[in-house]
């Protein structure tokens, strides 16, 4: 299949970028990233600069791949990362727009690669349970309701890719933050530090320059792990309660 790609090229964080046009001959069984491998092979052979894009596990779990395809983070398929998107979902002759995750809090490093370290700083501000190695009691000492553990897992399945931010018209990080808050809040072990965690993670999120959530639910629709926006409601509730009731 012959494709026309409009790829966002930007030499570095300072420069201004623009869409460049390329033609690629792809196979319908390729993954989207394998199609980009073909493009880069062409570019290098022609003496041009290959397109920088982030990728690693190529099985949908590491969260490294991060491009916006035809206006949608990770492309057109629900619950699918870019690396698991296959070319059979495109047609011969298609034009495909590829650009980085756009958000002020995710500055572009090069081409399709952005700096998502803001997410790390948010986790560092409180996205953990304070337990040193060796301090744990027996694993079965506290029973956790099956459904509740399962709900915690659904939130914890977040891969930290940032698609929620890229999808959001406001570049809000609420789905990411609320997923971590929810995961830990739903486990009894996480409840001790819950109030403090909510306050400091929201505070850090604001400092990073993400936008405000306006409940468009674009994040939920585009999340490759299909994390529910119910988590955002839980974060809103927790934030209000912890603000009003903490000492």
């Amino acid at each position: 299949m012959k494709l026309n790609l409009k790829v966002w090229r930007q030499a570095n964080g300072q420069g201004k970028g623009k869409f460049e046009s390329y033609n690629v001959d792809a196979d319908e069984h390729m993954s989207f990233l394998e199609m980009l491998d073909v493009l880069n092979q062409q570019l290098i052979e022609a003496g041009d600069d290959p397109v920088a894009f982030e990728h690693d596990c190529r099985e949908g779990i590491c969260g490294a791949c991060s491009m916006v395809i035809n206006g949608r983070p990770h492309g057109p398929n629900a619950g699918t990362t870019t690396c698991q998107l296959h070319m059979r979902f495109f047609k011969d002759g298609d034009t495909i727009h590829i650009e980085p995750f756009r958000a002020d809090a995710f500055p572009v490093i090069k081409d399709l690669v952005v700096d998502r370290s803001a997410f790390d700083r948010i986790i560092e501000s409180g996205g953990y349970i304070s337990v040193n190695t060796g301090q744990a009691q027996d694993a079965n000492a506290i029973p956790v309701e099956k459904e509740q553990a399962s709900e915690a897992f659904d939130a914890a399945t977040c891969i930290g890719c940032g698609a929620c931010v890229a999808a959001c018209p406001n570049a809000s990080a609420m789905l990411f933050v609320s997923a971590k808050v929810s995961h830990l809040a739903l486990m009894p072990q996480g409840q001790v530090e819950h109030d403090k965690r909510v306050q400091s993670m929201v505070n850090q999120m604001d400092l990073e320059g993400f936008g405000n959530c306006s409940n468009t639910y674009a994040c939920e629709a585009e999340c490759p792990k299909e994390i529910s926006a119910d988590n955002i409601a839980r974060l809103n509730r927790s934030y209000l309660i912890s603000s009003l009731t903490s000492d």
């Binding site: 409009k6 970028g17 623009k18 869409f19 916006v68 035809n70 206006g71 949608r72 727009h97 650009e99 756009r102 958000a103 002020d104 809090a105 995710f106 999808a167 018209p169 406001n170 570049a171 809000s172 320059g209 993400f210 936008g211 405000n212 306006s214 409940n215 468009t216 639910y217 674009a218 629709a221 585009e222």
Partner: peptide, 27 residues
């Protein structure tokens, strides 16, 4: 909020042709 959110979006050069999964009123 609108002003702050507009500023957080990372520039106005986004490709606009895509189909948004959100409700028109929400946007």
């Amino acid at each position: 909020i609108w002003k702050a959110n507009r500023g957080a979006g990372g520039g106005s050069s986004r490709y606009q042709g895509g189909k948004s999964p959100t409700a028109w009123s929400s946007r």
